[in-house]
Design a protein around this nucleic acid. Sequence first.
DNA 1: CCCTGTGAAGTGTTTCACAGCA
DNA 2: TGCTGTGAAACACTTCACAGGG
Lengths: 263, 263
Amino acid sequence: MATGRNHRPATRSRGIPEATVARLPLYLRALTALSERSVPTVSSEELAAAAGVNSAKLRKDFSYLGSYGTRGVGYDVEYLVYQISRELGLTQDWPVAIVGIGNLGAALANYGGFASRGFRVAALIDADPAMAGTPVAGIPVQHADDLDRIISENGVSIGVITTPPGAAQQVCDRLVAAGVTSILNFAPTVLSVPDGVDVRKVDLSIELQILAFHEQRKAGEEGGDAGPDPAAPPVRATNTTNTTSTNTGRKGPDGDMPAVMPA
Amino acid sequence: MATGRNHRPATRSRGIPEATVARLPLYLRALTALSERSVPTVSSEELAAAAGVNSAKLRKDFSYLGSYGTRGVGYDVEYLVYQISRELGLTQDWPVAIVGIGNLGAALANYGGFASRGFRVAALIDADPAMAGTPVAGIPVQHADDLDRIISENGVSIGVITTPPGAAQQVCDRLVAAGVTSILNFAPTVLSVPDGVDVRKVDLSIELQILAFHEQRKAGEEGGDAGPDPAAPPVRATNTTNTTSTNTGRKGPDGDMPAVMPA
DNA sequence: CCCTGTGAAGTGTTTCACAGCA
DNA sequence: TGCTGTGAAACACTTCACAGGG
């Protein structure tokens, strides 16, 4: 999941389990849909179905927020929408900056659901001088040289990184230095950040590989047995030598790097 | 995490924990980088650092795959790359179809890391007739009417959904009917699928909401205490009657309760 | 002596099942 | 009666700590 530091390492009372937090947005979405249809109340069973979880889990999750339901009846939709929104911090405005306006960055800038819930695309930043000034999704792209100023002037605390992997750590460092404390990373790179900064990553290639794993299982299964057992696995190198390994000097050798991002 | 059915509900021997499977791609990426730099062996400590996990976890993870290390030395990079690739099913070709060629779909089609490891964009599909024939990332877009044929002709078992949310379930149903058994869903919708079909979702808006939650905590914390405990939470509707009608009332005593917004 | 591999302990999450309230 | 809220059991995952092989 996230790469960042541990959140609240088993701390004080008000602690909502991370797994629960991750589901709240799901509940909120389902509730919002009900709200739009003017449904006044909903049972844990119904809501759970709409959110794609089971009802025991949902009730347990809600129990961490407080007792917001009514026995024998269910939950008041509007009330719950508000409580969850507040818990998630969506009752305030979150200016977001997107760094790296390639295909993906542009797609995100155009993404409607972005602006919807308290999130506002406050700035688009790219390292290509040719892009500066060009509007994407109605917002002019600004040059990376001004990153620091842009972040502080807009009070951005959430940054989205959609740069090529070679640039991600550097961009991350600059964002953090400028005051960003939450990062959503789309670059296939492990970011290292100081304590107190949260990083979440979204990685297409990892998701596909996980699917491939299960897909392979399915295929191997139906044939009865005789799974994929490749003729001859490469022999393990017996060779020992080397040491050094020159730690990970940052600076990627970003040789080629396709438009968006290589593996 | 995923929305799909439970994977292997506590089943047979060869079971690698799901959490481990989710990390294998991370290890693989780190190992590939080492391999490119011709590093022959790596210790659990070094590799763990490169992958952003701790070494005990990494060793435990590898122990599920078998004993591929050498005590006192570490792991053979090439050998491990091969073993993990095989375990993940990346030694075979996975034709993938992307449905919904908007901003995001196009970004994914252009995504380099996509093609890299066994995954191949076999088809782009969109419902807009105007797009049919237009090449995106060098691949001509095909019309959704032919979805069935396209999927079977190309032997696609992994589908990527990047349609608007309203179309996602329908597209999903059609993909499944055509033989797809793994779906990567970018639409902010809960998909329901029959048993045996895996769904993973990638949801920008959920990730942002999770970040906002933690961000809010940080903000509330630095003031010493006096956490966010709003003077008085909005009153719960006591009204059992009603349907329809303005359930707007609920303004929070703490003043606002800004309209929270639809999906 | 270094570093892997792994039991065992610790922590977090899900599910069960039912008491209790509207 | 119907549905929430929640202890307690079951399960999953992580971390510890060290035995043991190279």
